[in-house]
Write a protein that binds this DNA or RNA. Structure first.
Length: 503
RNA sequence: GAGCCCGUAGCUCAGCAGGUAGAGCACCGGACUUUUAAUCCGGGUGUCCUGGGUUCGAAUCCCAGCGGGCUCACCA
């Protein structure tokens, strides 16, 4: 395989690219260098250097390494060529280190070839750690090896890659030249790692449930449809893992969680991507109060873990994530921000909402009127963390009813910066009531609500075997990452956000 | 899906009262043996997003399309 690859594919691929890609002068120069290297017997993609140190090691352990021989590998990002002694910047995953190459040390031939390198080439270098006259810790190169020839010029080092479209489409370039973008994804990784470790530390087990669902469930959303050929049946990309995780409660796992993608066939915006990452966690013998505590603990804990503080800055706004977060019922929140008292006008909710100018779908019920009023009039005010609780039962088909008011549920949604960050409730474990709720959803669907839930007999059957009382929680991980990384768009925290294909 | 804005060199951006397309970095040639956005001398490398239209003449004005951003709608 390797032999086949090395015996002439360079020519083929060069021809291919020449035929299929527009080659500008800058690329032609690099291709010319590549050709000359190959003619000279070099193998520009076969370097074998294995680094002994990272750039950061050399800086942080300078006292110990001074005068020692080290081997590093990375991408060449700057070249300052002088007469007989040149400098270069080598970047690896840990950072930058300066190289110093002197003709008298490496010899005429090596020196000349070094000067022929292009910015973007991957090289391995062996040399001695020292400090320059100007005080910069550097590597005095004894030998170097080309590891991978770069055929395209990188974006400019000083301004980076500003074009938002290019940053998303060619994320690798964004990561190379924009350190702040790189930082966002490192933080994202740390946030998710923290959440995972925290849950495991609390005795949760991590599980994986299907992404392909015969019946999409667990949320109000339009699914992506697909098809399984061998089974000859339609399948849906999951809109939520909820119903499978609850089957695991039935199965005797008391604390489970899943971190993974959900897919929703809906609009794209600065806060919505068709596929996004959620955490869902379920705990038996717990209720929504317990899950609220878990929520504020995980989010504030993540902030403290990765930022060192629970007080964050988001787009010029200070947000204090320190628990406990206030609890505020949805009806009370509406009363506070709009003056509308739905409890005082029970039975006339739809009418009252419409009179207040709230946009409602035709055929909306009381619960939808209340929810719409909240979303259209209250949400935007909820900047500091707050748990909105006690949602109407009509819009919470999987949540347990309040014992003291069966029209409301033991549900919560934390809001931060006006965004719904999570959603949780005491899980409905009464199979009779669950069946009624599904039937209600089916009626809504038949009446034209294409986001209403489907009847899920398989899930009901599981509930009929008995599901322990449990609290459930879903957190929109991307939005948490946006908040903690001060990112204005969800696309800034997703490595490859969805884009239309290039024309 | 609607409204507003954007699309010029590899990158970052000027140019838009219509008159031969510019700068910085990058790149190419030369000088330079401790520079660091190295410096100095010389060189502009382009499908001005695409397609029509107006005009003697369009990067510039008009129309349509494509792609992107923001706001709104739906949603998390």
């Amino acid at each position: 395989m390797d032999d086949v690859r090395n015996n002439g594919v360079f020519d083929d691929s060069a021809n291919e690219l020449a035929n299929t890609t527009e080659i500008n002068d800058l690329m032609a120069v690099r291709r010319g260098k590549l050709e000359r290297l190959i003619q000279a017997g070099e193998r520009p993609y076969d370097g074998k250097t294995v680094p002994t140190h990272l750039a950061r090691d050399v800086i942080t352990q300078f006292e110990a390494l001074n005068g020692q021989t080290v081997t590093l590998a990375g991408r060449l990002r700057a070249l300052r060529i002088h007469g007989g002694a040149s400098f270069a910047d080598l970047h690896d995953s840990s950072g930058r280190i300066q190289l110093f190459v002197r003709r008298d040390n490496v010899g005429e031939a090596v020196y000349e070839s070094f000067k022929e390198l292009d910015l973007g080439d991957f090289i391995g270098v062996r040399g001695t750690v020292f400090r320059t006259k100007r005080g910069e810790i550097s590597i005095e190169v004894e030998s170097y090896e080309l590891l991978s020839k770069s055929l395209r010029p990188l974006p400019e080092k000083w301004h980076g890659l500003r074009d938002i479209e290019q940053r998303y489409r060619r994320r690798y370039l964004d990561l190379i030249v924009n350190p702040e973008s790189r930082k966002v994804f490192i933080l994202r990784s740390e946030i998710i790692a923290y959440i995972r470790q925290a849950l495991v530390g609390m005795g949760f087990i991590e599980v994986e449930t299907p992404m392909l669902h015969p019946i999409p469930g667990g949320a109000n959303a339009r699914p992506f449809e697909t098809y399984h050929n061998a089974l000859d049946m339609p399948l849906y990309m999951r809109i939520a893992p909820e119903l499978y995780l609850k089957r695991l409660l039935v199965g005797g796992f008391d604390k489970v969680f899943e971190i993974g993608k959900n897919f929703r066939n809906e609009g794209i915006s600065t806060r919505h991507n068709p596929e996004y990452t959620s955490l869902e966690a379920y705990q038996a013998y717990a209720d929504y109060h317990v899950m609220m505590e878990l929520t504020e603990k995980l989010i504030s804990g993540a902030a403290k873990e990765v930022l060192g503080t629970a007080v964050i800055q988001y787009q010029g706004r200070e947000i204090d994530l320190t628990p406990p977060w206030p609890r505020l019922s949805m009806l009370e929140a509406i009363r506070r921000y709009t003056g509308i008292d739905f409890e005082a006008c029970a039975g006339r909710e739809v009418e009252v909402a419409r009179e207040a100018g709230v946009r409602l779908k035709p055929g909306a019920n009381a619960g939808q009127a209340i929810l719409e009023t909240f979303e259209q009039r209250v949400e935007e005010h909820l900047i500091q963390p707050v748990f909105i609780t006690d949602h109407p039962v009509e819009v919470s088909p999987l949540a347990k009813r309040r014992a003291d008011n069966p029209r409301l549920t033991e549900r919560f949604e934390p809001y931060i910066n006006g965004w719904e960050i999570a959603n949780g409730f005491s899980e409905l474990n009464d199979p009779i009531d669950q069946r009624r709720r599904f039937e209600e959803q089916v009626r809504a669907r038949e009446a034209g609500d294409d986001e209403a839930h489907f009847m899920d007999e398989d899930f009901l059957e599981a509930l009929e075997y008995g599901m322990p009382p449990a609290g459930g929680l879903g957190i929109g991980i991307d939005r948490v990452v946006m908040l903690l990384t001060n990112s204005p768009s969800i696309r800034d925290v997703i490595l490859f956000p969805h884009m239309r294909p290039r024309a």
